[in-house]
Amino acid sequence: MVAVLNRWVRHVPPWTLYLAGLAHIVWLFWLGETGGLGPEPINALERALGETGLKLIIVGLAITPVMKVARINLIRFRRAIGLTAFLYISVHLLVWLLLDVFLLSEIWADIVKRPYITVGMAGFALLVPLAVTSNDWSVRRMGAAAWKRLHRLTYAAAVLGAVHNVMLAKTWAAEPLTYLAVMIALLVLRLRWRTKPRSGNAGGMGRARQGPEPVGKGMSA
């Protein structure tokens, strides 16, 4: 079953994710313009974009655990998932800047005065170097170890994004808290795996480990 899934997944080119993301974003704008997002489409659009971005970050961070636990190998989609998440969050930010707040004075005031905006902007700022270096050339140039170290920032950005989402609700709502709990669980999982005795490998869960491991412990087909 897992083997079949892994084989099937190999036939899906990662670029389809970019296309799907773009199409979904265009679809959301179209919905907003035609009443499909309700009477207040700007906030609805911001939410839909931000939440999809968060979900994609969760999916991206879950790829390694899923491979370790369920032996499903989706590693070839990770870059596309990460970059698509970045696309959603960038458009989320643009909608906030251009359609929601718009006034330059108020944008700056919000960033420095409103903790949830500050936290969200910090999360976005952390994502920028990750997006910029999400290409083969950057991996080669930086070296795998340094590149992986940099990309651990994803966890910080993810937690900031989830906290941003919790903070903007009027009260403690279940859904944003669930996102935050999942982010923290993924982070804890990552830290626990790291502290297992595996010294000498600065790269953390490097590509080298990911290859042989699923095979080593046998398939749960």
Binding site: E33, P39, I42, L45, D100, E106, D110
Partner: peptide, 13 residues
């Protein structure tokens, strides 16, 4: 958040 301005519902995107 600021209370200086408000979003009028029904104004569209």
């Amino acid at each position: 958040w600021s209370q200086a301005r408000e979003r009028v519902i029904g104004g569209g995107l």
